[in-house]
């Protein structure tokens, strides 16, 4: 940890080798359909980790938790950026053209990886809320609006879903 804060090159390489795959997995669960942009986000995430390592506070959680939240936030920012929205429009055509072709084999089915796989075990009404909150980054208020359910209900359901998630992760 000290080596990282001192910006040690080797330590940072080690950090990358150890955690990049796990973080890339979460990025791809958020940016599901564009490998190139997911790679860009991974790059941005590690550059941010490098720059902000001094602000990491051990008393507030584990290093991985800190990095995971950086990765999630960066992915959601990308999801909402203009560049991403545009790239979606541009991608639609080739995606349809080559459907069943080469692209299909290289693209993993992201619904079957990581937390999303665990989410499948939840009740649908719980699952959709966690999806919206965790993978799409909507606030509880936005979700309550979108689904016309009381804010309190959103909050309890998400909390309950997360508790179940914890059990599945054990």
């Amino acid at each position: 940890m000290l080596a990282l804060k001192e910006r040690n090159n080797q330590a940072f390489g080690f950090l990358y080798d150890n955690y990049a795959g796990a973080l890339y997995s979460i990025i791809k669960q958020i940016i599901t359909d564009n490998n190139e942009l997911a790679g860009d986000v991974l790059q941005e995430v590690f550059i941010n980790i490098w720059r902000k390592i001094e602000t990491y506070d051990q008393t507030k959680g584990r290093l991985f938790t800190w990095m995971l939240n950086i990765a999630r936030n960066a992915s959601i920012d990308m999801l909402r950026s203009k560049g991403y929205q545009n790239s979606q429009k541009n991608q639609e055509l080739p995606d349809n053209v080559y459907k069943g072709g080469v692209s299909q084999t290289t693209q993993q089915n992201v619904d079957n990886i990581g937390l999303k796989k665990v989410l499948e075990k939840l009740k649908p009404e719980h699952r959709v809320l966690v999806e919206l909150a965790y993978f799409k980054g909507f606030t509880h208020e936005e979700i309550a609006d979108m689904m016309s359910i009381p804010l309190g209900t959103v909050k309890t359901r998400i909390r309950n879903a997360l508790l179940q998630l914890r059990e599945y992760l054990k």
Binding site: G21, A22, S25, K28, G39, Q108, V118, L169
Partner: peptide, 16 residues
Amino acid sequence: EESIEASAKEQALPTP
């Protein structure tokens, strides 16, 4: 945190 980390590492994907 440890269980999240373990699960994420288990699900790691090869990076570009």
